[in-house]
Each structure stands twice: as structure tokens, then as C-alpha cells.
Design a protein around this nucleic acid. Structure first.
Lengths: 229, 229
DNA sequence: TTTTGTAAAAATATCTACATTTTGTAATTT
DNA sequence: AAATTACAAAATGTAGATATTTTTACAAAA
């Protein structure tokens, strides 16, 4: 899923840690990322730290202005809509390919990950369950997409997933806290599987697109409540 | 088209210079990028140089193994096919959106850039003409795609363009050296415009997909001749 | 008083030079 | 030949020097 040869060197570690801190909200959108603060937080020199920031810049999670340092990339409702739309289009396109090209083992993978997802225990320790559900949900969609047979398309998909991640976090909490919303998602997933197995690529395309667009209103509401208009 | 706030600092300059050197073939695929050599070539310290390399790594033009330095990303026929396929799918998808959403000024932009492209003077100074033709060709396709109305999709498109660039260079030379191939391309472009203006999104999709896939056999032949199988 | 301008000071970003760690190579031993 | 060791080359990291931007303090003008 991720790049494999990422061994340990300070720049890589800082990259991973900062990426997590940004997507999980430890740093807020627009926050200035002071070199001095980062050095202390990640116990690292300025050189490797800059490397990490450079990579996150290429991934659009961090912005930079020359001689004026780095910031956490801003979030906005406009960007939310654009990212989700682009992602939905991409995922729908990939889904068509997967239906057309996916063989028996693809089908098996989809069914298997769907099953695993459906078996996430109903609310106990909310935060832990949230993590488990999210991982399995991602695995399910990954299994579907992987049928497209294109490593580059899978990379593009990963790119968009990364960029959506901060917005997705909001949706995720909403989802898991509301048993009803979760039930509704599960229903969507069932329908999705039916269409995928039916082999009707265009129907699958349409349904996947809608599935991916659904979270937008929910997240918009949350962002508005937080004044991130 | 590119990121605007890229002012001058050594890392940015080295990034741009190395990127150009890689896409234009001054460094060959698989070449080891020795720190000492790079420092000398770009007159820069190791720190900023690593920053540039980090960013190119995120863009897949450079690969790295921890503690063992950097290399120019390899090229292969397999990757060529994957990149061109993914690009064609993406561009076809974007074209559908552009036809559906593009307004009068989009149409005007397409017509205008097509006209400019058609007026490139027939072979004189080959190398200069090559550059002019390429720029105008890119502008033409950019004009088409821009009708999709999604900044993120345009970004993904740019990503794929960057990754295809080294392969595209081969095709470009072949194209411009052969007046016949160039004529054929011009004919394709005319057809493309007709379909775009007709508003038939699905037909446009199909034609754009084929247009984007066409170079694959040509480039494959060149790569095979160079033993990059 | 408020605004505007200016210069010094502080904070910050950026770069280089050198130190450290790791890897690659080749000679030497088993 | 295989393993080991010693040495050279290269990558990585840190600390401090340099350059740039931001803030502050203060004064002049409105």
C-alpha cells in the first residue's frame, strides 16, 4: 500500500510523524510550522526536518513560501467539494475497470473484506472501534479498486485519499457515533457488492460515484459549524 | 499551470534544474545520483540538494534507498504502458466533464489553441520547432481539459504528465521528424475538435482515449531499440 | 490622538562546513 | 571459495554562520 523501501532515517521518521500529526489534527489547518518547534517536537535537526516538509509539500499537505517558512495546508468547503468530487470521479472510473477486468480472486477479495467489515463489533470502546472500522472500510474499498489492474491509477487514488484524509476524519467520527448512519452505510455497501458482482459496469460506476459523494453534506455541516467556511 | 509561489531559494532552483535534467535525459534512467556530483553540478550544499531530491522522490522521478542514496527512476515498457493507460483513462474522464460543463469561453479557448497549434511553421530549425510545437500542443490539450472545472483533477493530470514526460520526449522527436506522423496527428486533432463541439460526451471520451493511447506502440519500439525492455 | 514611516532588534529561515554513521570494496585469512 | 577485516567512499546529521523577514520602538506628520 505504502512505499516499501522507507527505512529509518530521521527525515523519513519525521515525515511519517508529521503527516500523522497533520491528518489527525494535532496541527490545525493554516498553523505555522515553526522550525524551532518542529525540531524540538521531533528531536531532529533542521536539515532532515526540511526534507520531510518538502515531501509533504509535494503531497499538498503543507504549503511553503520561500524565506517565510511552512504552514499546514488550509482547509475549506470549496476544497472539500473539489477533492471529494475528483475522488469520486476517479474511484468511479477505477470501479468500471475493476468490474471489467477483475477476475475470480478479485471477487473473492471484495467479498472477504466486506465480510470482515460487517463484523466490526457494535459500539464498545468508541475510539478503538473507530480505528478498526476505518481500517476495514479502507481495506474493502481498496479491494474493489485493486481490480483495475493499474498501479498508476492506484497511486493516484492513494494521492487523493491522502488529501481527503483530514476531511474524512470528521465524517468518520460522525459515522461511528451515529449507529443509524453506520447502518445506512452498510446498506450502501451491500448494494455496491450486488452491482459489482452483477458485472454491470455502468451501474457500478454510478453507484460508486454516489457512495463517494454522500459524505459531502455531512462534512460541510461540520466545517460550517467550526467556521471553516 | 505550475505552483506560483516558487520563489528563489537554492532548494527550489536545484529542484527545477534537476527535474529538467531528468526529463530531458541529461541523467539516464537508473543513474546513480551522487551527492558529490550533484553538489558540484548545481553549486549547492548537501542540505538543499536533499530537499530537491525528496520532492522529486514524491513525484516518482527519483527513487531512494535509505543510506544508499538516490537514483533516477527506472524506465520500462511495462511502466510506459501503465502510465499511458492511466493517463488516457484520466484524460478521457476529464474530457467528458469538459464537454458537459464547458461553456462558450471553453469552446473559444479550444478553438484558439488549436488554431495556434496548426500554424506552427513546417520544419525549419528542427529543434526549435520541436519546442514550439510541443508547447502549443500542450496548451491545446490543457485548454480542453481545463473545461472540467476541477482544480484537483487538473492537478492529477499534471502529475501524470510529469511522469509521462520522459517517455513523451521520445515520441515527440519521432513525431516532428516524420512529417507524415505530424499530419496524421493534425487530422486527429481536427476530429477531436469536431466531437468536442458536437457535445457528444461519450464519443469525445472514446476519441480522446484512443488519441492518448496512440503513442504507445511508437514509444515501445524506440525503447526496445534502446534495450530498455 | 491617530496614522504613517523608519530603524534597530528579534525571530526565523536558510545554507555551509564539518562530524558521524553507514555502506561498498578489496585485501587477507581461514 | 567463503568469510573476515581494514580501508575508502558515500550518505546522513548537527551546529553554527548568514540572510531574510517580522516585530518593536519611536518619531514625525496628519
Amino acid at each position: 500500500m505504502a512505499v516499501p523501501e522507507e527505512k529509518n532515517n530521521l527525515a523519513n521518521l519525521a515525515y511519517a510523524a508529521l503527516k500523522r500529526d497533520i491528518t489527525e489534527g494535532a496541527f490545525q489547518p493554516g498553523d505555522k510550522l515553526l522550525m524551532s518547534g518542529l525540531k524540538e517536537r521531533y528531536e531532529i535537526g533542521a536539515g532532515p526536518m526540511r526534507e520531510a516538509l518538502s515531501r509533504l509539500m509535494a503531497e499538498r499537505l503543507v504549503t511553503a513560501i520561500s524565506q517565510r517558512g511552512f504552514r499546514v495546508a488550509a482547509m475549506s468547503i470549496e476544497e472539500l467539494k473539489d477533492i471529494y468530487f475528483a475522488r469520486a470521479q476517479l474511484e468511479a472510473m477505477i470501479t468500471v475497470l475493476a468490474v471489467q477486468r477483475g477476475g475470480d480472486e478479485w471477487e473473492a477479495g471484495v467479498i472477504a473484506t466486506a465480510h470482515t467489515l460487517s463484523r466490526v463489533k457494535e459500539v464498545q470502546n468508541t475510539d478503538e472501534m473507530l480505528g478498526v472500522w476505518d481500517n476495514r472500510h479502507k481495506a474493502f474499498h481498496y479491494a474493489i479498486a485493486s481490480g483495475c489492474g493499474s498501479a498508476k491509477l492506484m497511486e493516484l487514488r492513494e494521492t487523493m485519499l491522502d488529501q481527503a484524509e483530514r476531511y474524512r476524519q470528521f465524517w468518520l467520527r460522525e459515522m461511528v457515533f451515529s449507529g443509524e448512519a453506520l447502518k445506512s452505510k452498510q446498506e450502501e455497501h451491500r448494494e455496491l457488492i450486488d452491482v459489482l458482482m452483477s458485472g454491470d459496469a455502468q451501474a457500478a460506476r454510478q453507484l460508486m460515484f454516489e457512495h463517494m459523494m454522500n459524505p459531502i453534506p455531512i462534512i460541510t455541516r461540520i466545517l460550517e459549524a467550526r467556521g471553516l467556511a
